[in-house]
């Protein structure tokens, strides 16, 4: 059964929502710590990690995105970030991100969709860059317990997705 926000508001204290939020916060810390292998393990094999350009599109296949990763691309991206060849990743900015303003968009016993706001500050060579975005996580809840919960889709919509962010050596 799926409950929709507009009709029946699911409280943040709902245990299913708490599991989702804990996973989202764990993901945020892993990304700030650049623990990319552990980060990738949070995703389901059929999961997608997406940073679109078009602020409104859901048709990621037919539009140009900044990131549109399935498991294969995500795996290669992790390799790129850690193997030591990519000079942008080797000398990446330090990041600190806050993910909050959680809103449960839909909640069932096997899937939770949570919208949130993310504010990330990236520091490199005397400059602080601000990366702000709307985030949506789709999280598959495991019947075996929270350790088995996996992200099936994460979409990060930057407020300046159609502008010109700097090129990045880290992930959102």
């Amino acid at each position: 059964m799926t409950e929709v926000l507009a009709d029946t508001r699911v409280p943040l204290t709902d245990p299913r929502v708490i599991r989702a939020v804990e996973l989202i916060w764990r993901e945020a810390e892993l990304l700030d710590r650049k623990e990319y292998v552990a980060w990738n393990d949070l995703y389901a094999e059929d999961g997608h990690y997406i940073v679109p350009i078009d602020p409104d599109t859901e048709d990621f296949d037919n539009t140009l995105n900044m990131i549109y990763d399935d498991a294969r691309m995500r795996g290669m991206r992790v390799t790129r970030m850690i193997e030591g060849y990519a000079i942008a990743a080797v000398d990446a900015a330090r990041t600190v991100r806050t993910v909050s303003r959680f809103v449960p968009a839909s909640v069932s016993d096997d899937q939770v969709v949570v919208r949130s706001a993310q504010v990330l500050v990236a520091y490199k060579r005397g400059r602080h860059d601000l990366w702000a975005g709307e985030v949506e996580h789709r999280i598959r809840l495991s019947a075996e317990g929270a350790d088995g919960d996996r992200i099936t889709r994460k979409v990060v919509r930057l407020v300046d997705s159609e502008g010109a962010p700097p090129a990045a050596g880290f992930l959102l």
């Binding site: 140009l64 900044m66 790129r80 990519a86 942008a88 990743a89 700097p166 090129a167 050596g169 992930l171």
Partner: peptide, 13 residues
Amino acid sequence: GPFGFGTPDDAEG
């Protein structure tokens, strides 16, 4: 692009 496998390394250079 800003998260491609090529552009960020160019930009760093």
